[in-house]
Write a protein that binds this DNA or RNA. Structure first.
Lengths: 199, 199
DNA sequence: AAGATAATTTGCCTAGCGGTCAATTTTTTC
DNA sequence: GAAAAAATTGACCGCTAGGCAAATTATCTT
């Protein structure tokens, strides 16, 4: 009665194995070389890379050390190595949400982490809602005067000013001075954002 | 003769335990509740959080599932929850490197992932060097005309255009049209960059 | 093509640790 | 204070992580 496999385990093990093997091949190492370096037997390494064994953390730490990568990187979703996405000012697609005007500055999900956009905070809009999300956020004021509220702190930003803050602390944007504010906003989301929490 | 502990294991286990406990407390869950939900015994959970046991991957996957977080996040360095960093245009600190002029737009390392900067590509500079680094890169042209070379592809960007690419593919910036180019550049580095590889 | 050598995989085994139950201790509540 | 809830610990077992050595497959050499 092991209800363990809510996230099916085997495919994850296979993926892990593949990543490990790729790391090794990238370095042109043989199983023997790796075994000698880490003190782990060739046989076991082979089984790991085949996804036939479930490595203990100590093994994972050792391997991550040998490859000089973070353990977490062994579990991160594959980077789609799409080379480049260009978004032209001419083709801007403006979206509306919560009284703000958005223009995504990258076509979405080919890259995982960065989510850049151009945002227009319309004049006299009073930001009612406090935003809160995983990851970091950074913004840069192009034109206008921005009022940035972080939790209970207030900042006033001029064109050329930048702000960098933790997305988890409640924040809000509004314009001051009676004219629209144009900003560049870049969010950086972790690979697997925490969605609505608890039961 | 287990040469496993190159990266000392025990402290990592402790850290992991602390993270797990924090996740549980954040949700106001009791060991019993978590045990019931996951099918893992309270006793064992307690030991895990105390760092006294080395969880198997299947256990980790189950827990990550219960908390709805990525497994990798269990191994990532603590996010320093510093709330906000403001950089004023007035206080810009200009640095020079490789023929480019940099202005960091966030004061460094309090946040891990995002590294925003304003870059001036001086006129007629010929980007000789091809850059290559971990993580993603995104840029936005403020003024001037930029020539962006990604591997063997060439792109010409006008003010307002944006580009998003994988930092690992070799890339280079240069100016065209005989005038300086001002851009916003945001790099997104993974927590633990791969430093110089292999032996 | 066939030896020879390097590289990986597989059969088989077991020590040790992951994981549980039940009892004990600590913390909270009223 | 007692009583209930939450967390920890002792003692134990089964399973599997991981090693050894033989077998297989891939890579050279000539």
């Amino acid at each position: 009665m092991n209800s363990v496999n809510s996230t099916q385990l085997q495919p994850e093990l296979t993926k892990l194995g593949i990543r490990l093997r790729r790391l090794r091949h990238q370095r042109n190492w043989t199983l023997e070389a790796l075994a000698k370096q880490t003190g782990i037997s060739e046989a076991y390494l082979s089984r790991l890379e085949g996804g036939e064994r479930q490595p203990s953390l100590s093994i994972l730490f050792t391997l991550a050390g040998a490859y000089n990568v973070a353990i977490s990187s062994l579990f991160e979703p594959e980077q789609t190595a799409e080379s480049c996405v260009i978004v032209r000012a001419a083709n801007a697609v403006i979206q509306e949400g919560q009284g703000l005007l958005y223009t995504p500055l990258s076509s979405g999900n080919r890259f995982t982490s960065l989510h850049p956009m151009r945002v227009t905070v319309t004049a006299n809009r009073q930001g009612d809602h406090l935003y809160q999300h995983e990851g970091e956020e950074w913004l840069y004021v192009l034109t206008g005067q921005l009022q940035l509220t972080i939790e209970d702190e207030e900042y006033f930003l001029q064109p050329g000013d930048a702000a960098h803050f933790d997305g988890r602390t409640p924040h809000r944007l509004s314009s001051v001075g009676g004219s629209d504010v144009e900003i560049i906003l870049v969010a950086c989301a972790p690979p697997h954002p925490l969605r609505g929490s608890h039961s």
